[in-house]
């Protein structure tokens, strides 16, 4: 069970998640401080360390559209967030899979800040409203990367098989 701490609209771009001016900062240990830097309230909340691990940010359609910058996934992962959205932009979704940021595609989700969600296989239950919504699974190949512990571990295994 996890709580929704913030609700965002459609088309949240990687420029909003991780502004271009911090692109020279690449280490996953350093990117979290700039998460949603242009949204002062959200940035402050995340950096306060009072947000429990596994908290949810709820978004609309096309979350993560725009740039391929991987910092957009690592900055969210650094705060141990789960992103539940109606759908995700392609590169962002793949980056999340590769880095192990948990994303949930839930096209019909209805929920608000403060609601508690239970994320199960194939569905999300909004414990606050009692309603249940179907989710779209990751592709099999993406699931394999997640199961291997991310793309680094997955590729290392392939490299050793080849060597």
């Amino acid at each position: 069970m996890a709580k929704i701490i913030y609700k965002l609209e459609d088309d949240i771009s990687t420029d909003i998640i991780y502004p271009g001016r911090y692109m020279a900062t690449v280490l996953p240990t350093e990117t979290p401080q700039y998460c949603f830097d242009d949204m002062a309230d959200l940035n402050k909340m995340l950096n306060s360390k009072e947000v429990p691990a596994g908290s949810i940010i709820l978004a609309g359609k096309n979350f993560g559209c725009g740039s391929s910058r991987e910092q957009a996934a690592s900055t969210l992962k650094g705060h141990n967030l789960i992103i539940v959205a109606k759908n995700f932009a392609r590169i962002f979704l793949q980056n999340s899979v590769n880095l192990g940021l948990q994303t949930v595609s839930c096209p019909d989700i209805e929920a608000n800040v403060g609601d508690e969600l239970e994320i199960l296989e194939g569905k999300v239950i909004n414990k606050t409203s009692g309603k249940s919504f179907d989710t779209l699974p990751l592709q099999k190949a993406q699931q394999e990367i997640v199961d291997a512990g991310g793309l680094i571990a997955y590729t290392r295994k392939r490299l050793l098989e080849k060597a």
Binding site: Q94, N98, Q139, A141, L151, T155
Partner: peptide
């Protein structure tokens, strides 16, 4: 097409893009 940095690191390693639908 565009990919992320870790995916590129895998390309630099193996020469192919893993798991493209």
């Amino acid at each position: 097409f565009g990919i992320g940095a870790t995916e590129m690191a895998a390309v630099w390693t193996l020469g192919s893009v893993l798991n493209v639908p």
